[in-house]
Simulated assay, not measured.
Amino acid sequence: MIRTLQPGQQCEVWVASATGERELVYATGDILLEAPNWTLDGASLVLNGGGKLWTLDLAGRTISQVPLTGIPDPNNDHVLDPDGGHIFLSANDGHIYRAALAGGEATRITKDDGSFHFLHGVSPDGEELAYVSIEAGDFTQPGRLVTVPASGGATTPISVDGHCDGPEYSPDGEWLYFNTEAFTSQPGHAQLARVRAAGGSGVNNNDAERLLESDTVDWFPHLSPNGRLVSYIRFPSGTQGHPADLPVDVVLVSTDDWTAPLQTWPLVGGQGTLNVNSWAPDSGRFAYVAYPLATTDTTKGLT
């Protein structure tokens, strides 16, 4: 389903600094943009919106559509190929594709295996993808972690109890970071964890390492390219899934201590805010999207 803005709602693309500053780089009331990726040249962000893929030029503060063909409407699960010139992306037909950032024909990677495939991670060498598999596209079923060669082929499940989402490779390729409900019986109480990327079908819940124990619902951990910092999104306690238009926090922590936030940015958002890795290549900044409603004070805390 293609998301749209509510009457009077704005879409705001922000760039936050590891030192606490943030900057509004683009705002629109016309299109709901989601899930920024940062290009490897540091010049642009890549977002989806309105069933299309877009690039946001950070110097000119303008967006332009990536002219893709051979792919249904893309959703907010997309990650850049480490080659810098291509992107892997999930589409609303439940499959994963690869396409050039310059546009053109997209190539489908996943097979018709009875599941929907939601991409979240690409290995540092570009050879493997990590995604969430939802059986028959039935969202009452738990998400399962799976890897597949980036060129397509045989899939490898990673067995972790409970619903999981957001599997993303560490910069060294050794770990998959994700959120999971494996550590609780409370419905929807996602927590941050990691598991060995090479474990394959031999991995089970006992191998998953819980990174933070909290009362909030924590989703989508994203490591900086240097592996020292993590951004994630924090939902209110009791939230199920990662819905839109809630009071949430974008949180920055050090990988040395996940329990002590370095920075916290409150906003209205959730779905679309921080679904995929949005770190700049220099590890000094990352991007996120807020969706303030007509009554939201967007200047509060602005620096």
Rank of each mutant, 00 (worst) to 15 (best):
L262K: 11
E135A: 15
D257V: 02
F88T: 05
D172W: 07
L47T: 11
N204V: 13
S115T: 12
L58H: 08
A193L: 00
T28D: 08
G84L: 11
D30T: 11
L45Q: 06
N206T: 15
A27F: 00
L53H: 05
F178D: 02
L119F: 11
S224V: 06
A99M: 06
R61S: 14
Y291T: 09
A260N: 02
G188S: 11
F139M: 14
L101K: 07
G241E: 04
Y232M: 02
A106I: 04
T110L: 12
G84V: 11
N206I: 14
L45A: 03
N179D: 15
E168R: 04
L274A: 09
H95L: 09
V146G: 02
G70S: 12
P167H: 09
I63G: 01
N275I: 03
L302N: 05
P236A: 06
G42T: 05
R196E: 11
G104N: 03
K111M: 13
A102M: 09
G94M: 05
S201A: 15
G42N: 12
D256T: 12
A150H: 00
R144V: 10
Y97D: 02
P142R: 04
T299W: 00
A244G: 10
A102G: 15
S278F: 07
T273R: 00
Q9K: 10
Q263E: 14
N277T: 08
S64A: 15
E23S: 13
Y169D: 04
L101W: 07
T259R: 14
V217T: 15
T255D: 06
E21A: 14
Y177F: 15
T264S: 12
S214D: 14
A260K: 15
T180H: 08
N48W: 04
L119V: 11
L68V: 13
V13W: 01
H222R: 04
F118S: 07
W38A: 12
G85Y: 02
N277L: 10
L5A: 04
D218G: 03
L45S: 09
D249N: 15
S64E: 14
G49R: 09
A100Q: 07
D207A: 12
T216D: 12
T296Y: 15
A35R: 03
D138G: 13
S159Q: 15
G50N: 08
L68G: 07
T180Q: 07
G8V: 07
W265M: 10
V195K: 00
V195F: 01
A294N: 08
D30M: 04
Y26C: 11
Y291E: 03
G227T: 03
E168C: 10
S123W: 01
W38L: 06
G114K: 01
V250L: 01
A208D: 00
A43K: 15
G60D: 15
A136M: 12
D249T: 07
R194H: 04
T295C: 02
R61T: 09
T255I: 00
N179M: 03
V13A: 04
I109T: 06
V195G: 02
V148K: 05
V66H: 05
L45D: 04
T180Y: 01
H163M: 06
W54S: 12
F178N: 02
P7T: 05
Y131P: 10
G238F: 08
V253Q: 02
R98P: 03
